[in-house]
């Protein structure tokens, strides 16, 4: 009897890092940085994890069987079902009093779109899992189609003249589930990033983390500029960096610095200049920032 799923030894090169050198991520990919940060946070908390990864670039990272780009056990799930798969894995972990984390590592497509129902249900049940969405605002794996995380104006292969609709506010949706912890993370702010991972690793219940994840391939941007780009997104208020405790206590952890959102758009070829209405963009960002600031003022987290 020979079940190849089990008996083939994985070909490994480095057991030290969560994501190993030689993986297939594009240069300048935000997901790579996010995984390295996750690795460090786990180590400094002295914790181990099992990953559940739906169809997305993150499962391609593992490379071709029988190699594996990850040094932890990974269960590939169907595109829509990573929170369900993880709920099963976590249930058995808890029945056996095991201490490790069960972490979903999913793209925006698996989170905002096809996985929404399973995600919402797992959050509502307050499953003891960490759900991390690396949001590259596009379907990277399938070659760059729109998702409901794609920002207005962005050109994708299915929005050839630039997306006409707004980006879905996933944080508001997750907070509405009154989960213990929801936070946004930027790889341009590693200390804040690390602190939030650490917070999540020490809380019970459903924890949702959203990483703004640059994707040079989909954003038509320079790989070397990835970190600069997401820093601009934070500075201009396009990507607010904050955390929500128990679904209603807000804390803005990195304040915008007044950078011009237009600068962020100009440096990525996914945004056709002609389609951008500068004043409308500035007004939208200002409105969203003001609303969040007010929430943090009226319902502060501690």
């Amino acid at each position: 009897m020979n079940v190849t799923l089990e008996t083939q030894d994985p070909i490994t090169c480095c057991d030290e890092c969560l994501v190993r050198p030689g993986n297939t991520n594009c240069g300048g990919c935000g997901m790579s940085v996010g995984l390295i940060m996750l690795d460090r946070a786990l180590k400094s908390a002295g914790q181990k994890c099992q990953l559940v990864i739906p169809a997305c670039c993150g499962i391609v990272t593992a490379g071709g069987y029988p190699t594996t780009g990850y040094s932890v056990p990974v269960l590939a799930s169907t595109f829509a079902a990573s929170p369900a798969f993880a709920s099963g894995v976590a249930a058995v972990r808890d029945l056996n009093d095991e201490p490790h984390q069960v972490i979903c590592w999913a793209g925006d497509g698996g989170t905002y779109d096809i996985g929404m129902a399973a995600l919402s249900a797992a959050a509502e049940r307050n499953e003891h899992i960490i759900y991390i969405c690396y949001d590259n605002e596009i379907y990277g794996n399938t070659g760059g189609q729109r998702s409901s995380a794609t920002p207005p104006g962005a050109r994708t292969t299915t929005t050839p003249v630039g997306k006409q609709e707004r980006k879905k506010d996933i944080m508001a949706i997750m907070a509405a589930h009154r989960i213990p912890y929801a936070a946004t993370l930027s790889i341009a702010h590693p200390e804040d990033f690390a602190r939030k991972l650490d917070t999540a690793l020490h809380l019970e219940g459903f924890r949702f983390l959203l990483i703004h994840s640059p994707c040079p391939t989909g954003w038509k941007s320079e790989p070397a500029e990835s970190i600069e780009l997401v820093r601009l997104a934070v500075g201009s208020g396009l990507f607010p960096v904050y955390e929500v405790l128990d679904g209603w206590k807000y804390r803005i952890t990195i304040k915008p610095n007044g950078a011009d959102p237009l600068e962020y758009y100009r440096r990525q070829n996914r945004f056709p200049a002609a389609a951008m209405d500068a004043d409308a963009v500035r007004a939208e960002v200002a409105g969203a920032s003001a609303r969040l600031a007010r929430l943090a003022e009226v319902f502060p987290a501690g």
Binding site: S77, T78, A81, A84, F85, S87, G88, V89, A117, A118
Partner: peptide, 19 residues
């Protein structure tokens, strides 16, 4: 759970974890 798709999803995760 919220659907049959997830019902089997949970059972897959549980079985993979040895239950």
């Amino acid at each position: 759970v919220e659907s049959e798709h997830s019902a089997m999803g949970v059972s897959i995760g549980a079985a993979m974890a040895g239950a």
